[in-house]
Design a binder for these strands. Structure first.
Length: 304
DNA sequence: AGCGAGCCCTGCGCGC
DNA sequence: TGCGCGCAGGGCTCGC
């Protein structure tokens, strides 16, 4: 569900609330949400309680809250992934519990007082964990919002995303052209470029007028650069609109929806006229999910 | 290297 | 009204 713009909306919402705040309590309601924290829910609660958080950082669809380092301890962060249905919500301590509440973290902020970070998740594909921070391969900050070149161990293999100031455009173009696969597969490969999911892959391909099965090796550099520019553009516009919400599933930290669903040109638009040429958008099964495209603007690549 | 299948889950809308 | 089915924004691991 949440892709880069939605997760970035959550990050910017959390940042002022968690930066400088001290964890006064941790309650794991659903242990399965701690699946990625191998030492278990109790260990998570014990090790996090009492610690101070220093910010909110994002790379792709991963989000983490660095923990103020303790003497003699390796640096760690609270790592979160929303999966298909996860939410991070800011609540008052006395607020009624959210539906599908999985983890509850109470904070004491020097200026904002007591507040709760509630992790809600219908499908439990998302997770929280305490993860060790390791040095980034390129020496640049770990992600958007980071002040140091550190990244959680479980995120180290994920590529930077197109909104990261340290994203390497030339490196991306070269690596994509060396791949031997289709364009949409490449866009969805988080180790090549991160943050793009099914919605924004379809939107970026529609904007670039490229079919999802176009072989990565068949494009020339300028075409790949255009695809990257269109991808970045759609991510930025979605972020400006607060993300894509089809229902109450995706919301910001205050529970509010984003409005980009009104500006989608391909995803979920099957049967509606293409905004460029009027041809009805079609939906096709691809990679065990749906792909949406304009059959006229996005021609099937001719096999050879 | 690339790719498909299986798995981790809940809940909604639809057709019968 | 009830039931089964397909579908949903993600990602990890395994085996070919």
């Amino acid at each position: 569900m949440p892709e880069l713009p939605e997760v970035e909306v959550v990050r910017t919402g959390l940042e002022p609330a968690v930066t400088g705040a001290r964890v006064t309590g941790v309650e794991v309601v659903e242990p399965r949400s701690l699946r990625r924290h191998l030492a278990g829910a109790l260990d998570f609660e014990r090790r996090l309680t009492g610690r101070r958080l220093t910010g909110a950082v994002r790379r792709g669809k991963f989000l983490w809250l660095p923990v103020e380092p303790a003497a003699g301890e390796a640096p760690v962060a609270v790592l979160g992934h929303l999966g298909m249905s996860g939410q991070l919500l800011l609540r008052a301590p006395d607020a009624a519990p959210d539906r599908q509440l999985r983890v509850r973290i109470t904070l004491e902020h020097p200026e904002h007082g007591d507040l709760v970070v509630a992790f809600a998740d219908q499908r439990i594909f998302g997770s929280l964990a305490l993860d060790r921070l390791v040095l980034t391969a390129d020496g640049a900050p770990g992600g958007l919002g980071a002040s140091s070149p550190l990244v959680p161990e479980h995120v180290a293999h994920i590529a930077r995303d197109p909104l990261d100031p340290a994203f390497d455009d030339d490196g991306f173009v070269d690596r994509l052209m060396r791949r031997r696969t289709g364009l949409k597969r490449a866009l969805l490969d988080q180790t090549l470029v991160s943050g793009i999911g099914n919605i924004y892959a379809d939107e970026a391909l529609w904007a670039a007028r490229l079919h999802y099965a176009v072989p990565t090796g068949s494009l020339r550099k300028p075409a790949v650069r255009r695809l990257l520019a269109e991808t970045r553009s759609v991510l930025e516009r979605a972020l400006a609109d607060g993300g894509t919400s089809f229902d109450a599933q995706y919301v910001n930290v205050n529970g509010a929806s984003g409005y980009f669903s009104q500006r989608l040109h391909a995803y979920g638009q099957q049967g509606k006229p293409c905004a460029r040429c009027g041809t009805p958008i079609v939906r096709e099964a691809f990679m065990n999910r749906s792909s949406h495209l304009c059959p006229r603007c996005q021609k099937v690549p001719t096999p050879r």
